[in-house]
Computed example of a mutant assay.
Amino acid sequence: MKKLINKPEDVVKEALAGMAVAHPDLIRVDIEQQIIIRKDAPIQGKVGVISGGGSGHEPMHGGFVGAGMLDAACPGAVFTSPVPDQMLAATKAVNGGVGVLHIVKNYTGDVLNFEMAAELADAEGIKVESVVTNDDVAVQDSLYTAGRRGVGVTVLLEKIVGGLAETKAPLEQVAELARKVNKQGRSMGMALTPCTVPAAGKPTFELGEDEMEIGIGIHGEPGRRRVKLASAAEITEMLATPIIEDLGLKAGDQVLAFVNGMGGTPLIELYIVFDALQRILNGKNIAIARSLVGNYITSLEMAGCSITLLRLDEELFRYWDAPVHTPALRWGR
Results as ranks from 00 to 15, higher is better:
Asp40Lys: 15
Tyr319Pro: 08
Gly304Ile: 05
Ala257Gly: 01
Asn106Asp: 01
Tyr319Gln: 14
Glu234Gly: 10
Tyr107Leu: 07
Leu292Gly: 07
Glu119His: 08
Ile103Ser: 00
Ile126Tyr: 02
Gly248Lys: 14
Gly217Ser: 07
Met302Ile: 10
Leu16Gly: 10
Ala41Asn: 00
Asp246Leu: 12
Thr91Trp: 04
Val293Glu: 01
Val12Arg: 04
Ser81Phe: 00
Gln278Lys: 08
Lys92Met: 13
Gly185Cys: 00
Asp253Arg: 04
Pro203Thr: 08
Ile31Ser: 10
Arg226Gln: 14
Lys13Phe: 09
Ser130Arg: 09
Arg148Tyr: 06
Asp136Ser: 12
Pro42Cys: 12
Met212Ser: 10
Leu316Phe: 14
Arg186Lys: 13
Thr80Met: 07
Trp331His: 15
Gln86Cys: 02
Met188Trp: 07
Lys7Val: 12
Gly220Lys: 05
Phe274Ser: 06
Val21Arg: 15
Gly189Asn: 03
Leu267Trp: 08
Gly217His: 02
Gly52Thr: 00
Gly76Asn: 01
Val100Glu: 01
Gly217Trp: 02
Asp246Trp: 10
Asp141Lys: 12
Ala230Pro: 01
Val29Ala: 00
Ile268Met: 11
Pro266Ile: 02
Gln44Phe: 08
Leu270Thr: 05
Cys195Ser: 10
Leu192Gly: 05
Phe114Asp: 00
Asn260Ile: 02
Leu192Ala: 03
Ala165His: 05
Gly125Gln: 13
Gly248Ile: 13
Gly283Ile: 05
Leu207Trp: 12
Ile297Thr: 10
Gly45Tyr: 06
Ile50Pro: 00
Gln184Tyr: 07
Gly304His: 04
Gly18Val: 10
His61Ile: 06
Asp253Trp: 04
Leu239Arg: 01
Arg28Leu: 09
Asp40Asn: 15
Asp136Glu: 11
Phe205Trp: 06
Val132Ser: 08
Glu301Asn: 09
Glu315Gln: 15
Val78Asn: 04
Lys250Arg: 13
Phe274Glu: 12
Glu314Val: 14
Arg226Lys: 14
Met302Pro: 09
Ala121Thr: 02
Ser306Gly: 15
Asp275Ser: 12
Pro59Gln: 06
Gly332Ser: 09
Glu14Leu: 12
Val324Trp: 07
Thr80Gly: 00
Leu309Gln: 09
Gly189Met: 03
Ala289Lys: 14
Leu171Asn: 02
Val128Gln: 02
Leu229Glu: 11
Val65Phe: 05
Met188Ser: 06
Ala146Tyr: 11
Ala90Pro: 03
Arg311Cys: 07
Leu156Trp: 05
Asn6Leu: 13
Phe258Lys: 02
Glu124Pro: 04
Gly264Trp: 04
Asp30Arg: 09
Met188Pro: 03
Gln86Ile: 01
Ile297Leu: 15
Val83His: 05
Asp85Arg: 12
Ala17Asp: 11
Thr236Val: 05
Ile31Met: 10
Ala289Trp: 13
Ile286Pro: 01
Leu164Glu: 06
Ala146Ile: 14
Arg333Leu: 11
Gly150Glu: 01
Ala90Ser: 04
Asp40Gly: 11
Thr326Asp: 13
